[in-house]
């Protein structure tokens, strides 16, 4: 599903944020990307949803080569991906329903289809009773559940999560992890960047370790 060949990324001339990364992640896999701050976890995810272009190397997602992709095709690639951030990235001026329906609107889905899917998705994250609330009226954990609902409503092939539990307390983290696990069980490939060792011990999965932009560990429990 996700393949990286000799991928390098340099933001400045002084050094590479990522260096010579080779990686194969099969369909339906659940992978932690671990490492200390500045190891290159976020850069790796940015390359995967085409927010950045690699300085060298090739990236393939579901057989599509991102490095050769025309910029006009990038939105269509992103429609096959779900992205979750530590800071949720919700639109504060819109309701929870509008936030979750946004990716479906972008894809031009019909109104009745959007309503049905959004309601089901919010129900699956336990927020169907907060449809009309706005993000700032919710707790951090609830906001992250909305962000996850938004990323999963399009039934993505790959879910990319960048420190999704970084701002949340341990109890909420467990709830969030359950959502990722159930998405993975439905066939979505999950890549989750974290440095939360407790979480990795509690839900052991394949673990890819980065350090100073290099891949230093790739093990499956």
């Amino acid at each position: 599903m996700v393949q990286l060949f000799n991928v390098c990324k340099a933001y400045t001339r002084d050094g590479n944020a990522l260096e010579d990364i080779n990686l194969k992640i099969p369909k339906g896999d659940f992978v932690y990307i671990t490492g200390p701050s500045g190891a290159g976890k976020s850069t790796l995810l940015k390359l995967l949803f085409a927010a950045e272009k690699p300085s060298r190397g090739q990236i393939l997602i579901n057989g599509q080569n991102l490095t050769r992709m025309r910029s006009s095709r990038i939105p269509f690639l992103r429609r096959q991906l779900g992205v979750v951030f530590q800071d949720f990235k919700l639109i504060e001026s819109r309701t929870i329903f509008e936030n979750v329906s946004f990716p479906l609107e972008v894809q031009g889905k019909k109104r009745y289809e959007i309503s049905k899917k959004v309601y089901q998705m919010l129900k699956s994250v336990g927020l169907e009773h907060k449809l009309t609330k706005r993000p700032l009226e919710l707790s951090g954990g609830e906001q992250q559940r909305v962000a996850i609902a938004r990323s999963l409503v399009v039934e993505p092939l790959v879910l990319l999560a960048d420190e999704p539990t970084g701002n949340l307390d341990p109890e909420v983290t467990l709830d969030i992890m359950e959502l990722f696990k159930s998405a993975n069980a439905r066939g979505t490939t999950v890549l989750l960047a974290t440095h939360d060792r407790d979480m990795i011990h509690r839900f052991p999965r394949r673990q890819i370790g980065l350090e100073a932009g290099r891949l230093v560990e790739d093990r499956t429990p």
């Binding site: 949803f49 939105p75 690639l77 992103r78 990235k89 639109i91 972008v106 399009v154």
Partner: peptide, 11 residues
């Protein structure tokens, strides 16, 4: 932020 999110979800 809205522009960034629109772009992220494939707009």
């Amino acid at each position: 932020d809205e522009l960034e999110i629109m772009s992220l979800v494939g707009g």
